[in-house]
Computed example of a mutant assay.
Amino acid sequence: MRQNPSFAMTDIAELRRLIEANPWMTLVSQTEDGLVASHYAVLLDDERDDLTIVGHMGKPDDMIHGLGERELLVVVQGPHGYISPGWYGGGSQVPTWNFVSAHLSGVPEVLTAEENLVVLEKLVERFESRMPDPRLMWTPPNDPDFVRRLEHGTVGFRLTPTKVVAKRKLSQNKTPEVVETILAELSGDGPYANPSLVAEMRRAHDALADGRRSHS
């Protein structure tokens, strides 16, 4: 992802929020047979306060990716959506796409079976705990043998990225009037209504406004 200083996202807290809110990620590796991509749910490592993530791959994806032996690129995709040139007012304009995304790369550490069990348990708890009657990993009818077989079919990993490229392109280069028009269009009932993108845009532009006030 080509970086643009105007859209760079560097705040660790904001990047952690992006990762936490968008756990379904794309994992990419360069192999002898070319690029390979997989898709898995990934979590922040709750024992760290940086951008370290934990997750797992089902076998044999770990072998295909060369997990632990070569660089892994993890693509985090946040809210995104189409922006019509008609929302910019007069003059020549082109359509574009607003988005928030981060690329985390590095060589991951392969977890032990016990560490992988902990990660699997946390993954299940993260999503299942919202259910009215949660079926957690160790909840019957799951028994220990079943859980161990489940773990044996996966390989856990921990990735502390050595390179992070994150971009928040949310019309920061437009006038406040144009931004409000875009927000109104995205907030309405039109074909490109997008509440999650509206929330990200407001967050980014509020931060810009706070920054301008602090320097005035």
Rank of each mutant, 00 (worst) to 15 (best):
R2P: 10
R2V: 09
P5K: 01
S6Y: 15
S6I: 13
F7A: 03
I12G: 07
A13I: 01
L15H: 01
R16K: 03
E20G: 07
T26R: 13
T26G: 11
V28P: 06
Q30F: 13
Q30T: 06
E32F: 08
E32T: 03
E32S: 09
D33C: 08
L35F: 08
L35N: 04
H39C: 07
H39K: 03
Y40A: 05
V42K: 07
L44G: 00
D46C: 02
E47A: 14
D49F: 04
D49C: 02
L51M: 09
T52Y: 14
G55A: 01
G55Y: 01
M57P: 14
G58E: 11
K59A: 12
D61K: 05
D62P: 02
M63I: 01
M63S: 04
I64K: 14
I64A: 09
H65F: 02
G66A: 04
L67V: 03
G68Y: 15
G68P: 14
E69H: 06
R70C: 12
R70Q: 08
V75F: 15
V76Q: 02
Q77Y: 09
P79Y: 11
Y82A: 02
Y82P: 00
S84H: 12
Y88P: 01
Q93S: 13
V94P: 07
P95L: 05
T96V: 01
N98F: 15
F99K: 05
V100D: 03
V100I: 03
V100N: 02
S101Q: 05
A102Q: 11
S105A: 15
G106V: 00
V107H: 06
T112P: 07
A113S: 15
E115P: 06
N116V: 09
L120W: 03
L120Y: 07
L120T: 01
E121Y: 09
E121S: 13
V124C: 15
E125R: 10
R126Y: 14
F127H: 10
F127E: 07
E128F: 07
E128L: 03
S129H: 09
R130Y: 14
L136T: 00
M137I: 11
M137K: 05
M137F: 10
W138T: 02
P140L: 13
F146L: 09
F146Q: 11
R149D: 07
E151Q: 14
E151T: 12
G153V: 00
G156K: 04
G156F: 08
F157V: 03
T160N: 15
V164A: 12
K167H: 14
R168S: 14
R168P: 13
K169N: 09
L170N: 10
L170E: 10
K174P: 06
T175W: 11
T175Q: 12
T175S: 15
T175E: 14
T181I: 14
A184V: 01
E185S: 02
G188Y: 14
G190L: 04
N194T: 00
L197T: 00
V198Q: 04
E200W: 08
M201I: 07
R202G: 04
H205V: 01
D206A: 11
A209W: 05
G211K: 04
R213V: 08
H215L: 11
H215A: 10
H215W: 05
S216E: 15
